[in-house]
Design a protein around this nucleic acid. Structure first.
Length: 414
RNA sequence: GCGGGUGUAGCUCAAUUGGUUAGAGCGCCAGAUUGUGAUUCUGGAGGUUGCGGGAUCGUGCCCCGUCACUCGCCCCA
């Protein structure tokens, strides 16, 4: 093994991996496009403030996971740990609130300084959608439906579970938070060390604890659903109703909370148990306060992000590479002719492999190795007749074809 | 950031409780085959046993450190 290794938590995507990766992104893009979402790309780094202000000063993402550095101009910038804050920033920078509602799709790398595990990398990739400027619960429903459609096309939806919860509006959230903190404080003595810390930073997170003792306490904790304002309750009912109309099945999980500060109302998470500890493949929610929090105009938003690497693990077969046509010339004369034939076929969008050296045997071996559908064999005898030998490599069948008819003869195998 | 497990050829794995020159399959290269791949046969290349230190007459195997991967925690996509 070589001493040269990639940076911890980063990976090379060699062709097989890359095709899986590409397939996931293309599937997400096409699904999102069907809902009218258009692709955008924001820079992979932003001024650190963009993430610091929006994610919450106590979130792990901000406190320990950001790749932050000072550039040569003395600016403090951060590699994006997620894309929603960037999109919100772009909306403000570009004055895009003139054009609401906006429906955006994105795909690209994200960076978090974490301890790597399966399905958790330091450079990973996400696809996602953001719907900006829509206050109605129908927006939440559409966004979730787009995520479900994506996973359905991927062939993964029937192995996934959609969990749904509401955090309520600000008033609901504050009321519940107060009650929960009071309850948890009464049981301080039996809370785990981690949860004592959560109690300070993000009390809702205690609901999510995997610690057994915590779970016993949480089991009797007051429920957030009992502290919703009538408006928040109606909103959530409308979202649920919308999903049911579409036949999208879900489970209510009252302990489902989001790590990032900007969420309100609907939050959801789609998991696939076969992935182990990092089983969330797609998650999101509503973030009505985000744009305003960043200093922009009050703009509601809802969206999700999905992990490309995690989705790629759910794929069965690796999507095949396109099968080329190999050209096998013999002799200098044929070689020149081969270049012209290759150029002509490529102009017609055939995938053509023309080797750089080797005798016929070598070139045929290479044709086989790259899984060519056919070999166009060019020898002086054939060329003298204005023909080539066309050999189909799956069947071994071989026939002579006039040079002008090659494209037509190959059309069925394109 | 915390705890457990694992590192032997490009890949998957062997290597008697510490004992000569670390093996196999697959893959790769070459030849059989100077106008035919895939199949078959023959041959070949490829290793600082992750790296560094220590104990031992002697280590792939024991001890310490380190790096990477992996499982879980934290957190998250």
């Amino acid at each position: 093994m070589s001493g040269l290794q990639p940076v911890r938590g980063t990976h090379d995507l060699l062709p097989d991996d890359m095709r899986r990766h590409r397939h996931v992104i293309e599937t997400a893009r096409r699904a999102a496009l069907c809902f009218g979402y258009q692709e955008v790309a924001t820079p992979i780094f932003e001024f650190t403030e963009v993430f610091k202000r929006t994610l919450g000063d106590t979130s792990d993402v901000v406190t320990k996971e950001m790749y932050t550095f000072t550039d040569k101009g003395g600016e403090t910038v951060t590699l994006r740990p997620e894309n929603t804050a960037s999109v919100a920033r772009a909306l403000i920078s570009g004055g895009l609130n003139q054009h609401l509602p906006l429906k955006y799709f994105y795909a690209g790398p994200m960076f978090r300084y974490e301890r790597p595990q399966k399905g958790r990398l330091r450079q990973f990739h996400q696809t996602g959608v953001e719907l900006l400027g829509v206050r109605e619960p129908g927006g939440d429903v559409e966004v979730i439906a787009a995520g479900v459609e994506f996973l359905r096309r991927l062939g993964a939806w029937d192995r996934c579970v959609l969990e749904l919860n509401t955090l309520g509006d600000t008033a609901s959230r504050q009321a519940y938070r107060q009650v929960l903190v009071a309850y948890l404080n009464d049981h301080r003595g039996r809370l785990s060390k981690d949860s004592l810390e959560r109690l300070e930073k993000n009390p809702l997170r205690v609901l999510d604890s995997k610690d057994e003792s915590d779970q016993k306490i949480v089991a009797n904790a007051p429920l957030s659903s009992e502290y919703l304002t009538p408006e928040a309750r109606d909103f959530f009912a409308a979202v649920r109703d919308g999903l049911e109309t579409l036949g999208i099945s879900y489970q209510i999980n009252q302990r489902l909370v989001r790590g990032l500060d900007y969420y309100s109302h609907t939050c959801f998470e789609i998991t696939c148990a076969e992935l182990g500890a990092q089983k969330t493949v797609l998650a999101g929610g509503r973030y009505d306060g985000l744009v305003a929090m960043m200093g922009g105009p009050e703009t509601p938003g809802v969206g999700w992000a999905s992990g490309v690497e995690r989705c790629a693990m759910l794929l069965g077969e690796t999507p095949p590479a396109p099968r080329p046509v190999a050209i096998v010339p013999m002799g200098a004369n044929a070689e020149r002719k081969a270049a012209a034939i290759a150029a002509d076929l490529r102009r017609q969008d055939f995938v053509v492999d023309l080797g750089f050296s080797g005798n016929m045997g070598k070139r045929m071996k290479r044709a086989n190795k790259i899984a060519a559908v056919a070999a166009i064999i060019l020898g002086d005898e054939e060329l003298a007749r204005g023909e080539a030998a066309l050999k189909l490599l799956d069947s071994g069948e071989q026939k002579n074809v006039r040079l002008g008819d090659l494209a037509a003869a190959l059309a069925p195998y394109r």
